[in-house]
């Protein structure tokens, strides 16, 4: 009887415990495997194909036929398009977070939250497709050119990252102690004064986290941007000229190249850059939240 009980105990406790621990380790292993494999592939450009790192990062000439591989256009394109999206999206996202918490909480919970959830749910190809059929023709008619442009990418991305920024800023602003708000009201401030000078500064850490996460999401978004940005390998002259992004060139060219060629290796290096930049964003967020915890 006693023996049976202990078998059951072992079965219930240790097997279950082991299984869930394996699941936890699996996440670590997968993440490490992704980083190691992509970086190992990405380094081949420099180790096997003997490209120079400096040239790779600073040259804007990408023509696999002439064996010149400069990634500057893609890095600049990705940076410009995601920064642009954040510049549009961050103020709107923060405004929505304030609206949901301090202006009209009931209306916000009833209408704005579901709206944001749906915006998250819309697949990125659908955003890209809408960009192609609505935004691009509109830009072409009003501003000339081909319509496929940096600004088209910025607008599409700004809609896509809005829910990310809004929901994290929302949490941050909700976390501000109501005592701050009351103290501010007690000093005779209006709602705007209380919100802009007390609540938002108090929620700064969380809001920054949301903005950086939005930036990261914009940087890594592939198909929606690729569909509307034009994909010319050229530094953009302005907002209305087409350009390319890291994700765009990866989604188009990888299948055209043979494994082991310099072209293929260069593409893997682009993937490595993308991975390292997204990792950098995570580190930035960690630093921000650590500082916030100390303050």
């Amino acid at each position: 009887m006693k023996g049976k009980k202990s078998i059951n105990y072992i079965k219930n406790e240790y097997i279950g415990r082991t299984l869930v621990t394996i699941c936890g380790f699996l996440i670590v292993l997968t993440t490490l495997a992704i980083i190691i494999f992509i970086c190992q592939k990405g380094m081949q450009s420099f180790l096997d194909s003997k490209l120079s790192l400096g040239e790779f990062l600073t040259s804007d000439k990408w023509s696999p036929n002439n064996k010149s591989y400069g990634a500057l256009v893609f890095i600049a394109g990705s940076t410009a398009v995601s920064l642009g999206a954040v510049i549009i999206s961050a103020p709107i996202g923060i405004a929505i977070a304030i609206f949901n918490n301090h202006i009209a909480p009931k209306f916000g919970a009833r209408f704005l939250k579901p709206v944001l959830e749906l915006l998250v749910g819309i697949p990125s190809v659908v955003y890209g497709f809408l960009g192609v059929v609505i935004l691009v023709p509109m830009l072409r008619e009003n501003f000339g050119g081909v319509g496929f442009s940096l600004i088209a990418g910025v607008i599409v991305l700004s809609i896509m990252i809005l829910p990310t920024i809004a929901s994290i800023a929302d949490d941050a602003i909700r976390g501000v102690s109501p005592a701050y708000l009351e103290a501010s009201y007690g000093l005779g401030s209006t709602r705007w004064q209380a919100v802009s000078r007390v609540v938002v500064p108090a929620a700064k850490t969380g809001i920054m986290t949301g903005v950086v996460l939005g930036l990261a999401r914009a940087f890594g978004e592939a198909l929606a941007v690729q569909m509307v940005i034009g994909n010319t390998v050229k530094l953009p002259d302005g907002l209305y000229s087409p350009t390319s992004t890291l994700t765009g060139i990866l989604s188009m060219d990888m299948s055209n190249t043979l494994n082991g060629t310099a072209w293929n290796n260069a593409l893997w290096t682009l993937a490595m850059i993308l991975l390292l930049i997204s990792f950098l964003f995570i580190l930035i967020i960690r630093v921000i939240s650590k500082k916030g915890a100390q303050a």
Partner: peptide
Amino acid sequence: CIETMASLPSIVVGLF
């Protein structure tokens, strides 16, 4: 690791 995995661009995961 979870945060890194969550922020991986989907195209990078696809390439993996």
